[in-house]
Design a protein around this nucleic acid. Structure first.
Lengths: 168, 168
DNA sequence: TTGTATGCAAATAATTTGCACCAAA
DNA sequence: TTTGGTGCAAATTATTTGCATACAA
């Protein structure tokens, strides 16, 4: 799965993710540990969707400096979501995380062929969602939209493949 | 989780789910067994969202007539989706199934308080989705939208609750 | 000090799969 | 007959949790 780096620009924020998280921890009487510091840095070093497993794979191995146990990774990802640093959603059965802090609200186009995720923003969608909510007496908090299809690259390569097959 | 019975009406279909499934099975050289017949009937006896576990719980116990093993239930649910009888999506980590055959395309409002699912239809959404797809060079197949919020009942009861708390 | 956080390993939960046996077509 | 289907139990996968120890405040 891949995503263009910061394809939607960013949102003005006064604190770095690290500072923001520290603030969150202090406000709750939680502790700022090396593991948490390390994971904030790693997670915000690239604007990319990832799951717990990918994150664990990118960590130093047991014994090396910077190692964080899987259990702690899972626990910390939850903290990040609570703290508003990350968002998560389900994709093909996996829990996928993405940056929330400092990044605008958006939805996704998903290529079911190459599994590429493309972000997009639509104010019309937000309006539509609020209208639907109002119509049904809902107080709307948020929504999740995923559009499944085939990206232009895959449409092209599939066409090529088809032609080849047609020649047989 | 609950849902109004057939809240969106239905779509014209010439075959019953049972007949439609039989057609599907024949076209693929698969077999129409008692278990499959039994599950089609059970699944289409109520227009309600459900997961594998709920279905298994509603089956006769081991030894009783009509018993179907969990493994077969899981295998059969997949067949139903392949056959176009059911749709599935993720909700709170569970795989939720709903009727597809004979039922119009729709999306959901989800009350995060009482876990009620409400269906709604929006042509504007389909148009918006196609426009977004086109903008990004995607060939769109389908989409999945869930609007999270609080239904009117829960908004009311929460207000009541708040007042009670305020009195303390 | 005092209460959190972490690592490890065991426990869960939801499916999936291997296999021997059963049964549609 | 032949090939797909089913039940059962074991295997998977993704997490979560209990617990003893380590550490931030």
């Amino acid at each position: 799965m891949s995503i263009d780096q910061a394809s939607l620009g960013s949102v003005e924020v006064s604190l770095t993710p690290q500072q923001r998280f520290e603030e969150y921890l202090q406000s709750r009487g939680l502790r700022h540990t090396d593991q948490r510091r390390y994971l904030v840095d790693l997670v915000f070093s690239r604007h990319e969707h990832f799951d717990a497993d990918m994150l664990i794979d990118n960590l130093p191995r047991k014994g090396k400096p910077g190692y964080v146990s899987p259990a702690t990774v899972y626990r910390t990802l939850k903290e990040f979501v609570d703290a508003g640093l990350l968002n998560s959603f389900q994709l093909d059965g996996r829990t996928v995380f993405e940056h929330d802090y400092g990044y605008p609200q958006h939805d996704h186009l998903y290529c079911t062929q190459c599994r590429k995720l493309v972000e997009f923003q639509s104010d019309a969608l937000t309006e539509l969602r609020d209208a639907v909510g109002a119509e049904h007496g809902f107080r709307v908090f948020e929504h999740r939209l995923i559009i499944n299809g085939m990206c232009s690259d895959c449409v092209k390569s599939r066409r090529r493949t088809k032609r080849k097959q047609d020649l047989v």
